[in-house]
Design a protein around this nucleic acid. Sequence first.
DNA 1: TCAAGTGATTAGCATATGCTAAGACTGATC
DNA 2: GATCAGTCTTAGCATATGCTAATCACTTGA
Lengths: 231, 231
Amino acid sequence: MHATLRDPEPPLTRSVEDYLKAIYHLSSQGGFAATSDIAALLEVAPPSVSGMVKRLSETGLIEHVPYRGVQLTAQGRRAALRMIRRHRVLEVYLSQQLGYDWDGVHTEAERLEHAVSDELIERMAKALGDPQYDPHGAPIPTAAGEIEEAELVPLADAPIGAVIEVRQVADEDAARLRYLAEQGLTPGTLLTVTERQPFNGPTIAKLRPSGEARVVGQELARSLWCRVVTP
Amino acid sequence: MHATLRDPEPPLTRSVEDYLKAIYHLSSQGGFAATSDIAALLEVAPPSVSGMVKRLSETGLIEHVPYRGVQLTAQGRRAALRMIRRHRVLEVYLSQQLGYDWDGVHTEAERLEHAVSDELIERMAKALGDPQYDPHGAPIPTAAGEIEEAELVPLADAPIGAVIEVRQVADEDAARLRYLAEQGLTPGTLLTVTERQPFNGPTIAKLRPSGEARVVGQELARSLWCRVVTP
DNA sequence: TCAAGTGATTAGCATATGCTAAGACTGATC
DNA sequence: GATCAGTCTTAGCATATGCTAATCACTTGA
């Protein structure tokens, strides 16, 4: 009801959608997304970001504090979450219905997310039984724009002895994702951290229930986000 | 083998892909596609077409005879057929796997065709059992770029008394497509033309085997392309 | 054969997006 | 508090695509 009464938001370009997604990801932790970080994520030069930032703040999608960074407005956040829903539903669909690998879905979804209609996304979601998580374990926003905010810690910071569940893999590199899949370190896996080497060394964990040991280097252990099941 | 050795053709923009498709359709009968026809089909102003035509002939995708019109080169034709394959595979996929209506697939495919990868199209085609025709009966080019060229006549010209098969509906208007579906006039339907009213009047045909009569106005009968089964 | 009309092209401009080079700001260090 | 390194922004430009208005060329009818 309310949604249909709202002013019809004008269609956004592909670029704009990419900027909004980037800003969402970069500002989800701290408050502001920095120009140079946006530039690095989107692989454009910083002045291109400045230009786009000006346009986006004029249309009310972001707030810009010069020399500080940008934040999404409510409208910008809505648009960003819509893109993220599209991306993640597409990832699940491609991997479950079309046999894509866990590590190959990202690139395809990256292009499709700008072209699909809302109707197609909802049909895909329904065909999949309205999934809550994408293949990398990231939560899928609802069509209404709500997203689960879970308390997760990187495996590298997980307390020794705790039972933890791998929830999310924050890495898009196909080779790394493939490696994690081979190691059985996919969302849903339960682990006990047994040991952590000093000086940013690897984390050592046992798979549950099998008890097999896994040695996870510092870098990977930073991108494996986990939920602490029993401390 | 050969395909992988060919120079990697540079990615085309969405606009360019649309122009090539339009030129393919407009020049499939006669030799040349006229500027004004391209402009009408793509809903742009004629000078925009002139500009694009210049760029496309510089990159070798089309041949331009000033004041005459344009034709696709071999390279342009290859690119156009690739888009048409994408479009039609998408239409079949959307209608068979995601429950889209016969008349609703076109718009969605129109946007997606520019974003999907070749790999996704081949996965969809395989999941569908490599279909030969799209939901409107149009032939789907092969991945290698071959397309069936059938001898079809509009229902409006079909000989009286002949048994004919509806093969293809050359109309994109959703309401008209829905109407034809209601009337049972979809690709594969067999008919006998019993009568044609003079002065461009309607064609009257009987469905086979049921014998039910259908009165088809001149305009629709021009967009229903048929194969003559027995003269 | 030539003039009119239709259709195509060119000229000139607008917008979105990107770039490099140069200048402006901020925060940390002495 | 002054300076410097790093970051951000502005200036100026390029490309792709679109538009309108004006001009040009082909065809056809008188």
